[in-house]
Design a protein around this nucleic acid. Structure first.
Lengths: 255, 255
DNA sequence: CGGATAGTTGAGTTATCTCAAATGCAGTGG
DNA sequence: CCACTGCATTTGAGATAACTCAACTATCCG
């Protein structure tokens, strides 16, 4: 319950902050199961040994950029709370969301080893995150086989995700893609204890879903409309409930 | 010029083989620049030191499976010669090609650390490849910081490729995707010294291009037809020439 | 309350798909 | 050598998923 030091690096204004009701070694990183953050967190705990310098928590309001595509910094952000989105864009404005980042997520494992040019990371809700220095992480990993194992698991998972994304975008219909996005998010949130039953906070705008699924916001609206009329899901006041999971799964795999 | 031991693990029949006119330390791996194979090759050279057990070269005819989606083996293939294709598929037959593998390519860096379920690797032409044992590679990498650097570079490159693939599939038109595939292949072949001027061997069937671009073979045929009528490229007898690179680049980025 | 952002809905357009038939081409067995 | 079979490619016609545009409504936030 210690109050955490905050700095506003990218956001200039001070902002009201949510309070995490969690007194783990790193109060601002409520969840980290299975994620790389797990590994890093573990070492935050031993920071007294000088393993990894304690990093400050940064806070950023909704819609603000967390990492700029041209930034060539030696720091890697890891999300502590809130939702954000990692994307790449074309000069003409078309853009593709590569992943939604939830608490405990790093942008990409690859990001830990070098700058990933063109990646844009942007807050959806208010977000808190930590920045780690690449060289610190690198040294830590090379010196610690357990950590390295963890990393390589995350790495494989990430590759599988990327494969699935390509399959979705290249070969699945609009409804399938959208249904899958929802189920995916539900699963990831569940892992973090962020589902209440079949209901989740759902701060995404339809343009987020559209950019993630390679569709138009208008079309997303139509498909979500159908899903709701068919009582598969229900959306209101920024929260989404899965009403009929089996059917939704069917829609996700359909054909 | 030493004749290399061959075993036919997946292919049962003995087959006529192309001869590589190349006498580098590992005659069956003609090119490896920038790829992970580079790193592994380096150590093949020092195998006398016992760094990495010398691996046998396997030969497989066109269209044959090199790595089965359900295979859970501790061996990782690296392509020595020929073209192959790495893909994932849906039960109903829809499939997405994730990358074309050229000489020197491993399937994925992630693959070096654990099995990647669902991946299918299939020969397009006759292919030779080597199998490395995962545990050997892992030990080698952890003990050798230089190699590890190399690996992490490859890894970042791979991540960038995956990002671009998603952007292509989600946000680009059919012509853009196809033009980009061609330019991409040309560039990769050039790095390996496998271009003669603007002409390359082009063993891909249109269904390969279709599955890589998330399109229908029929549509691919139409687009390639247009490209040829517009004198951007020319295709005959399994070889492709870029006639007007600037225009082709324009088509690739167009909008 | 007012302005901005987000979502809905309908009408019409277009890129891409499906189906189908015709052609080519490569390998096989008689 | 030929006929045959199986794949690859081309082409056209029609269908459809997803897009664009535009107007309207709802929601959010100061």
């Amino acid at each position: 319950m210690a109050s955490v030091a905050q700095s506003h690096v990218i956001a200039d204004e001070a902002l009201p902050r949510k309070v995490h009701g969690d007194a783990s070694p790193c109060a601002s990183c409520p969840t980290w199961e299975l994620s790389l953050c797990a590994a890093l967190r573990k070492d935050c705990a031993t920071e007294a040994n000088g393993a990894l310098p304690m990093s400050t928590v940064h806070t950023v309001p909704a819609r603000r950029t967390i990492f700029h595509p041209k930034e060539w910094s030696e720091f890697v952000p890891i999300i502590c709370s809130g939702w954000s989105v990692s994307s790449i864009a074309l000069p003409d404005g078309r853009r593709q969301i590569l992943s939604f980042l939830l608490p405990g997520d790093a942008v990409s494992t690859a990001f830990l080893f070098g700058p990933l040019s063109g990646r844009h990371v942007e807050a959806v809700t208010e977000v808190t995150y930590r920045k780690f220095k690449r060289s610190d992480i690198r040294a830590l990993l090379l010196g610690n086989p357990d950590l390295f194992d963890r990393l390589s698991k995350t790495w494989i998972e990430e590759r599988v995700q990327a494969d699935q994304l390509a399959l979705d975008l290249g070969r699945r219909t609009a409804s399938e893609r959208i249904a899958r996005q929802i189920l995916n998010l539900a699963e990831r949130l569940a892992k973090r204890g962020m589902m209440s039953g079949q209901t989740m906070d759902f701060p995404l705008r339809q343009r987020h879903i559209a950019d993630a699924a390679g569709l138009t916001p208008v079309h997303v609206s139509k498909v979500l409309g159908e899903f709701q009329r068919a009582r598969l899901i229900e959306i209101n006041s920024r929260s989404l409930t899965i009403l009929n999971e089996p059917e939704l799964r069917l829609a996700a795999d359909w054909r």
